[in-house]
Design a protein around this nucleic acid. Structure first.
Length: 469
RNA sequence: GCCCGCGUGGUGUAGUGGUCUAUCAUGAAGCGUUGUCGAUGCUUCGACCCGGGUUCAAAUCCCGGCGCGGGCGCCA
């Protein structure tokens, strides 16, 4: 439904299953060879039906005595679920299933009547988790056997959606003049402070895994790249253990010259709007697959509600007031934690920005405008967050482009400017005002797919107690 | 790291001192019927996280360990 794809024939197959499903009328009576996983087999004796699944769809294969050898028929009937097979045969219109009186007739379907049946690999039994079983499966069991979990329709659909989300996001940013970059993930020193880094050895030099592309994407903007984005991994050695934190995650970052925090908030809301609009237009088939599963689990269906623009902006000072009015003990300068976000989310359940945080709470590279102060007289910053409900999606802001201020900020945070010379030197020879943000891809996917745990939306999540598979 | 909860066949569960030689579903093995389609009928298989304790008796209660889940903290 979504994309025009050209499926060239391969060594192993002439057609994908989706091609037969979609072009069945034209293909009836023609010879095809298809491959896939055997989802189920029915029938003993003279006939056998196989539900065959490849990465594009599912189709029924019909084997009958006479069309295939008795040996082939036997093998098909006793084959274990999820074994991979190759089928050659003729496309035919499927006999419609019996439906009770008064029920609507199902739409026309196609099948392949096999003339040749080949087992590619046999699946061991029992499966560690059933691909089509109705029983629910614990997340840990699923993640230990992700290769099988991924064969389940709704799981596959979530990662298909993830691919689309990145595609639409890229598409949008490129249309606004952003260029895709990659920054190093092996770095010499703590790039920002504030979070724990994973140490490693780089030959004989101690090094770290990057926590963020922040400083490097700024350097490219200082280098005249104008507008850049990066979709890449970030590593945090934090002992957190929650539904929304991982120690390795994919960060979707942008940085643009001649922009302030308001400008990049607008970029972000336009991008999210575009992603939601495109998913809503192109990918309802994936949403339906997810909803079918949710229904079987007794969960409400998800819908792709394209958010309206602009997203609400709730400045930090107003957020504090709102939380205080709800009776919470919080004062200016305190962090807004999860329970406080629940209060804000009651009024703003969707996407909303939280701009103008206190300068002292933001990293050294965040810009501030002299004189922009709170009612308590404290300096405000040009840093912002984007939340969806209670969950933080993004952190961003305008960056400090004046090297003297930057070095002063570093000293205020107890950092030594000399350790950051690779970065601060970039500001000494002319620096454009600039701004950017970093968005957690998995968290955005949680919103889109209704997942309650970030691990659901990451193929092979890395948390405190999991480094395999 | 803190608080709370949980750990039963391959998978997901019921059972909270005694006919538990442990329930149900799903699954696996075998046989039969069938253009089936969540195939079906019959037969069979398979489990109480680990260690210690209380008790006549422990899946069940207590202690420790390990593992998992939820909440929180920590966290661009």
């Amino acid at each position: 439904m979504a994309q025009e794809t050209t499926w060239h024939p391969t060594k192993f197959r002439t057609h994908t299953i989706s091609q037969i499903i979609n072009q069945g009328d034209d293909l009836v009576k023609s010879e095809v060879t298809i491959c896939g996983f055997m989802e189920a087999n029915r029938g003993k004796g003279k006939i056998c039906f196989i539900d065959l699944r490849d990465g594009t769809g599912k189709i029924q294969v019909f084997l009958k005595q006479g069309s295939v050898t008795d040996d082939e028929l036997n093998q098909a009937q006793s084959l274990s679920r999820e074994s991979t097979i190759q089928i050659s045969g003729e496309v035919a219109e499927k006999r419609p299933p019996k439906v009770p009186e008064g029920q609507p007739k199902p739409p026309k379907e196609y099948e392949v009547v096999a003339t040749k049946f080949t087992i590619l690999t046999r699946a061991e039994t029992p499966l560690p988790l059933g691909v089509t079983d109705e029983v629910s499966i614990g997340l840990d069991t699923r993640l230990d056997n992700r290769f099988l979990d991924l064969r389940r329709g709704h799981v596959n659909a979530m990662f298909t959606l993830r691919s689309r989300v990145l595609q639409y996001g890229r598409e949008h940013l490129i249309s606004e003049g952003f260029k895709e970059i990659n920054s190093p993930k092996i770095i010499a020193s703590a790039s920002e402070g504030g979070t724990n880094l994973f140490p490693m050895m780089y030959f004989d030099t101690p090094a770290f895994l990057s926590q963020s592309p922040q400083l490097y994407k700024q350097l490219t903007v200082l280098g005249g790249m104008e507008r850049v984005f990066e979709i890449g991994p970030a590593f945090r050695a934090e002992n957190h253990d929650t539904y929304r934190h991982l120690n390795e995650f994919i960060s979707f970052d942008i940085e643009g010259a001649w922009m302030n925090d308001d400008d990049v908030m607008c970029v972000q809301e336009r991008m999210i709007h575009h992603i939601w609009k495109m998913v809503s237009k192109n990918d309802q088939d994936q949403i339906s697959i997810i909803n079918e599963f949710r229904k079987s689990q007794g969960d409400d269906p998800i819908t792709v509600d394209v958010p309206s623009l602009p997203f609400p902006r709730i400045e930090y000072c107003d957020a504090i007031k709102m939380i205080q009015e709800a009776g919470e003990d919080i004062s200016w300068g305190d962090d807004i934690d999860s329970s406080h976000c629940d209060i804000i989310a009651e009024k703003y359940p969707g996407f909303h920005f939280l701009p103008r945080w206190p300068m002292e709470m933001k990293p050294f590279y965040i810009h501030h405008v002299e004189g922009e102060v709170s009612s308590t007289g404290e300096q405000l910053s040009r840093g912002f967050d984007l939340n969806f409900g209670r969950d933080e999606m993004t952190s961003g802001g305008q960056r400090e482009h004046n090297v003297e201020v930057l070095e002063e900020n570093l000293r205020k945070k107890g950092l030594n400017p000399e350790d950051f010379s690779f970065y601060t030197d970039g500001f000494r020879y002319g620096a454009p005002p600039h701004a950017g943000w970093g968005l957690g891809v998995a968290r955005l996917l949680m919103v889109l797919t209704g997942s309650k745990n970030v691990r659901e939306t990451v193929l092979f999540p890395r948390d405190r107690s999991r480094v395999t598979p």
